[in-house]
Design a protein around this nucleic acid. Structure first.
Lengths: 219, 219
DNA sequence: CCGTTTGTTATACGCATGTATAATCGTGCG
DNA sequence: CGCACGATTATACATGCGTATAACAAACGG
């Protein structure tokens, strides 16, 4: 009696690919890129290592797919945030910012995941293109929201403002995720909203009534 | 005649340690953490792999030392920037910000290096302490510079402002380093100074006369 | 209900990694 | 000048990695 061969079920290509991609993301988020080995990914996804090469030409291709999925997911979260809320420009901008500074976007695992891919982004032109597209898409959404604000602006002004707000949000995202104990609950969102308000010359804190998990920490 | 044993010179402990640390940093900056193998580090430092274990108990200890050196170096750059310049609070703050958004601090290698250590920072309490100390030191310097500005402030205001300015600078640092082609020369510094000005309610762009490599891109 | 297809597992290979230990030789001290 | 210490090199080892390939079995069509 030899060790029985492992039982399995056939699944759709899509479900297997997403399972492998999710497993990769989880492992990188937990233990950095070096923890995402072929064997660990397979175990997490509930398959054996060989199957990875059946769905991805190489581990590098799986890596690229996981990065693409990460970036798509994060930009999607931002778009979702401005879907439901009321039509006021300030409301929409405030919701967009708050969504980026709250879980699940504000999350140490997400930051580690993002950081773990950074050097691959720089060396792989394909990943660089994905990164640039996601970054510019986010910044573009931000800029469009800024342009809808009731203000009179100089030409070229909103571009610089969008860059600044994007950088501010990114920085708060990293630090709020990495050192959550350093901030009071909701403090990161409050700081983000008031700082963006200062940069743009508006008052977003007056338009936070509809935001979930907010209002209790701001006087 | 067998292959001659490699000639060598004895060197001080300090020079060997710094050589190994620098080699580690260079390799991580160039190719990510996975490129910094024991053999590659030794070759870059001009020694053989075994010597690493003579000066560091393990590769992990060398890694920790390299991260500490990175953080110390980056905070030192900021302190240097406010040493020479004139006594005006605005000048000093402007110089501090500009120094963080200009090479050698603004550099893709530095960002990749910083990002490459991120997951180790989260999992290793020792590195976490180093990170937190460096982050808070930087923020503290920033807050002290902000407090010297001629303004009347509410209690607790400067803390939030320091967090915001720190996040803004960090975000510009990352994006300016990773996508330098996206920005006009000096644009990152200009945006940083004008945004911090807006957040703090001052005008730093009027106090950039003494900044090197500046003034030509701002009207 | 059988045969074919192909998703999935199992096994093996070559290589690189971090570490341990022994051999060597540069160097400061007596 | 010689000798002993230890900084440095050399070699070896176990392990884990990504990859290649063959064997197997689950599901579907006939």
């Amino acid at each position: 009696m030899q060790p029985a061969r492992r039982l399995y079920r056939r699944e759709s290509e899509e479900s297997r690919r997403t399972a492998l991609i999710s497993a990769t993301q989880e492992l990188v988020a937990e233990g950095g890129p070096e923890a995402a080995t072929v064997r660990a990914i397979a175990e997490r996804a509930g398959v054996t290592p060989g199957l990875i090469r059946h769905y991805f030409q190489s581990k590098d291709e799986l890596t690229r797919a996981a990065y693409r999925a990460l970036m798509d997911g994060m930009t999607a979260k931002g778009s979702d945030a401005i879907e439901g809320v009321g039509a006021g420009p300030e409301e929409r901008l405030a919701a967009f910012i708050a969504a980026s500074l709250r879980p699940p976007v504000l999350d140490a695992g997400a930051v580690v995941l993002w950081a773990g891919y950074m050097h691959k982004v720089r060396s792989d032109p394909d990943l660089m293109a994905v990164h640039e597209a996601a970054y510019l898409a986010y910044r573009d959404t931000l800029q469009r929201l800024i342009e809808t604000l009731p203000r009179t602006v100089l030409p070229g002004q909103t571009r610089a403002e969008a860059i600044a707000c994007n950088a501010l949000i990114d920085g708060l995202w990293v630090e709020g995720s990495l050192l959550p104990a350093t901030f009071a609950p909701g403090e990161v969102i409050t700081i983000g909203l008031s700082s963006v308000s200062a940069i743009l010359g508006v008052n977003l804190l007056e338009h936070t009534a509809m935001l979930p998990d907010f209002g209790k920490t701001t006087p």
